[in-house]
Every structure is written in structure tokens, then in C-alpha cells.
């Protein structure tokens, strides 16, 4: 008897909880509709998105963020000539592309940026100054928001590491890069397997890691005696490790800083940075100035962008 009672109570409570949850959802939907309706009354176009913009950014020091702020002019020089990252402090910060995409996919009002290679249909990439981000537009230079994938290494690279590098820059290696959705560089001849053996350690930017893993796999197929380790961390660590000799080849998803000396660098690919919004957002096109204003916190509501 007692058990039955507890069971019933439990059931009631569970039902209650569900109703509350469902209720929340409905309310919110109504609220959204209400605010959209208000917007129409306000005279803005019916399709114009509205509501406070949720800006999502990468963490300070990230190669993606560095390239983004530089390319859009969010990074500005202060009175002393120091470059200052002016990204609004109201911006959410995440250190993961997955979190960035999930956040934008789940929030109608969010805007963020990711590597073009990671883009999928859960979010929408907007045109910048009328140019669609794609491999072609980055390659022909019409889409301006792109950054280099660099490898850095010290003089006196081991034979195997040099051979791997040759492979990356060869037609075969660049084909792997293009296939992965990145923009290949002019190839330096074709590659023939060297038959070398040994270990190569590669470390650095998490943006470069996926394509580097692909390259390493393709290379190892040709040279089964070579073992390549790819350690995913970040651009700065990649450069430092190469400087300190902790790895043979460092990866950086940005230009080298003036202070990062003592290593050679080579651009192995270009990568576009896509500005992404929610699929429900009607905006398809932003000017680079608008993006800059959004990320600097000067524009905080989507309705301000509607023309």
C-alpha cells in the first residue's frame, strides 16, 4: 500500500516537473513571438532579426581570435602604439570550436566565428562584404578573412622531418589539404617516397591539427617506417616547442609575432574564418564594419543592423 502511494506521489511530481518544463518552453516561444510582433510595429522589416546580440568569441591568445581581430580591425593601436584587442567584454568566451558551434546553433541571436574547415550546416556562415566564404573565394583573394597555417622549425631539421615537410609542400600533400576544405599553396613539385625511417614530432595549434593528422596519415602510407606524432595544443605552444626543440615541427594558425624568432616558418595552407550565425537568423550578409562594430560592442541589437 505504502509503496503504491509513494509511486503515485512520485508520478504526480514527475508529471508536475514535466508540465513546468513544457510550460517554460511555451512561454518563451510566446515571448519571442511577442517581441517579433513588436518589432514589426516598430516599422522594421518583418524578416529583420531583433533582440540583443549574443557575441561569442574565442579565448585571448587563440590563433583564430588573433587572426579574426586583426583582419576585422577589432584590434586597434592605443596611444602608445600597442595593439589592443577591443573585443567587447560582454562577449562570451569559449576555448572550443564545438562549444562555439553548439552555442550559435542553439541561440537565435548569437554570432561567432570558426575556421572554415570546421563549418557544417548546423550554423550559417554569413557573406562578408557580399562575398561568400568558400575555398574558392579565399583562394582568389576576394574573401579577405583568411589566415595562414604555418609550420615552424629550427635550422638543421632531421632528414625525416625535412622529408615530411617536402611532402606537405608537394602536389600530393597540397591535394590532401585542398580535399580537407583548406586552401592549398603553390606546390613544389611532386613527391616520391624516400624510404626513410624514424620519428617526427609535430605540435601546436588545434586548428591545424586535423589537417596535419591527415597529412601525417597520407605520408605514413607512403613511408611506413616513419612514425609521426601530432600533439594538439595551440599556436603559441607550437612555436615555443619548436624553439626549444621539444618538437621537430611546430604548428601555428596565425602569423608569427615579432618576438618569435630563431625559427623558420612556412605557410602550408590558408584557412578562411567564417562568421557564423544561427540558421534562423535572416541576415545573410554583413559588411566587415558591421562585424567589427558587433564584436567591439558598438552594435548590441540585431535591429540596429536592419536596413
Amino acid at each position: 500500500m505504502k509503496r503504491k502511494k509513494i509511486f503515485t506521489l512520485g508520478l504526480v511530481a514527475a508529471l508536475g516537473a514535466m508540465t513546468v518544463l513544457a510550460g517554460c518552453g511555451n512561454n518563451a516561444a510566446e515571448n519571442n513571438n511577442a517581441s517579433a510582433a513588436q518589432q514589426e510595429d516598430g516599422g522594421n522589416g518583418a524578416s529583420a532579426p531583433s533582440g540583443a546580440i549574443s557575441v561569442v568569441s574565442r579565448e585571448e591568445g587563440s590563433g583564430t581570435r588573433g587572426a579574426f581581430t586583426e583582419l576585422f580591425g577589432v584590434e586597434q593601436e592605443d596611444a602608445d602604439g600597442n595593439k589592443v584587442d577591443m573585443t567587447t567584454t560582454a562577449a562570451e568566451v569559449t576555448n572550443s570550436t564545438a562549444v562555439m558551434m553548439t552555442t550559435v546553433a542553439g541561440n537565435d541571436n548569437a554570432i561567432g566565428y570558426i575556421s572554415l574547415g570546421s563549418l557544417d550546416d548546423s550554423v550559417k556562415a554569413v557573406k562578408i562584404d557580399g562575398v561568400e566564404p568558400s575555398v574558392d573565394t579565399v583562394a582568389d583573394g576576394t574573401y579577405k578573412v583568411a589566415r595562414p597555417f604555418n609550420v615552424v622549425y629550427k635550422d638543421g631539421l632531421s632528414d625525416v622531418a625535412q622529408d615530411f615537410l617536402n611532402y606537405i609542400m608537394s602536389e600530393e600533400g597540397q591535394a590532401v589539404i585542398a580535399e580537407d576544405g583548406y586552401i592549398s599553396q603553390p606546390a613544389e613539385g611532386s613527391y616520391t617516397a624516400s624510404g626513410l625511417s624514424g620519428d617526427v614530432s609535430v605540435a601546436g595549434s588545434s586548428s591545424v591539427t586535423p589537417v596535419m593528422e591527415k597529412l601525417a596519415e597520407a605520408y605514413q602510407k607512403l613511408n611506413p617506417d616513419v612514425n609521426i606524432e601530432v600533439q594538439q595544443s595551440d599556436s603559441t605552444t607550437g612555436v615555443t616547442s619548436a624553439q626549444e626543440g621539444a618538437c621537430d615541427i611546430g604548428m601555428a594558425s596565425r602569423e608569427l609575432k615579432d618576438s618569435e624568432t630563431g625559427v623558420e616558418s612556412k605557410v602550408i595552407a590558408m584557412d578562411g574564418i567564417a562568421v557564423i550565425v544561427n540558421n534562423n537568423n535572416s541576415i545573410t550578409d554583413l559588411t566587415s564594419d558591421q562585424v567589427k562594430q558587433i564584436f567591439m560592442g558598438e552594435v548590441t541589437d540585431w535591429s540596429e543592423l536592419a536596413k
Binding site: 519571442n32 549574443s54 562570451e92 541561440n107
Partner: peptide, 10 residues
């Protein structure tokens, strides 16, 4: 859920 309750990023 928080987003629906209040709007914003949640």
C-alpha cells in the same frame, strides 16, 4: 532552458 526563460545567451 535558461535561454527560453529569460532570453539572452542562456
Amino acid at each position: 532552458i535558461v535561454q527560453n526563460m529569460h532570453g539572452g545567451s542562456g
